[in-house]
Amino acid sequence: MRTSLRSASLLGVLGVLVWPASTAAVSEQPGEPAPRPFGAACSVYIEGSRATAHCHNPYLDTDRVQLHVECERWWDVDADSTPVDLGPTGRATLSERCWKEIRSVWVSHLRR
């Protein structure tokens, strides 16, 4: 009898764990298109005080990419590159620098 109670408890827990996942698929609105993939793939390299990003957009929507560099020293001016619109299969190289050390670097994306 103990085995039956354990099995029943296990099935009850599994039913609770599986049930929300199955209702999520049903709750989607029929006829709504799935969101289109977006965002250029960017590789960022730091060499000394210079940061460079190589970006490629494999998707159909245009992506406006911009490189942002935050400098380590309080007196060193942070830098943002000029934004570049990358169409489908577009490639771009973005570059910025600090006078001294770099604290952080990132690329922003904007759907155009």
Rank of each mutant, 00 (worst) to 15 (best):
G87L: 03
A24Q: 08
S22T: 15
T89F: 06
C98N: 01
L60G: 00
S4H: 14
P30C: 12
G31E: 12
R103W: 04
D80Q: 06
L5G: 00
A8S: 08
G39Y: 15
A21Y: 13
A8E: 08
A51V: 12
V18S: 05
H56N: 07
A8K: 05
S43V: 08
E101K: 05
R112L: 14
P35A: 09
H54C: 05
R64M: 12
T3P: 00
L17G: 00
I46N: 14
W74T: 13
C42E: 14
G15T: 13
L110Q: 11
R103C: 00
D78Q: 03
P33S: 06
V13G: 01
A24S: 12
V16G: 02
G87R: 08
R103V: 02
G48W: 12
E70T: 13
Y45V: 08
A79C: 05
M1R: 13
T3K: 13
S9V: 15
S22Q: 14
V13A: 13
H68A: 12
P30F: 06
L94F: 11
P88V: 04
L110V: 02
V69E: 10
R64P: 04
E101D: 15
P83A: 07
R91D: 03
V65D: 01
R36G: 11
V77M: 05
W19L: 15
D76E: 01
T93S: 01
L11E: 06
A8L: 11
D85H: 04
R2Q: 08
S108W: 11
D85N: 06
L17A: 13
E28F: 14
A25E: 13
T3M: 08
I46E: 13
S108V: 05
P30N: 12
C71Q: 04
L86K: 06
V65R: 12
R111W: 15
P58R: 11
S81P: 02
W99H: 03
P20N: 12
R64G: 08
T52M: 00
L86N: 01
D78W: 00
T3A: 08
P83I: 10
P35E: 05
L94K: 00
L67Y: 07
L94V: 06
A41H: 14
W19S: 11
D61W: 15
G12E: 03
I102S: 06
Q66W: 08
W106G: 02
W106C: 04
E96D: 03
S43F: 11
E28N: 10
T3I: 10
G90P: 07
H109S: 00
F38T: 06
D85M: 03
D78S: 07
H68W: 04
V65C: 04
A53S: 09
A92E: 09
P88T: 02
V84L: 07
E28G: 15
L11R: 07
D61G: 04
S9H: 02
T82E: 07
E70A: 03
M1K: 15
R64S: 11
H68G: 05
C98H: 00
R50H: 09
R112E: 14
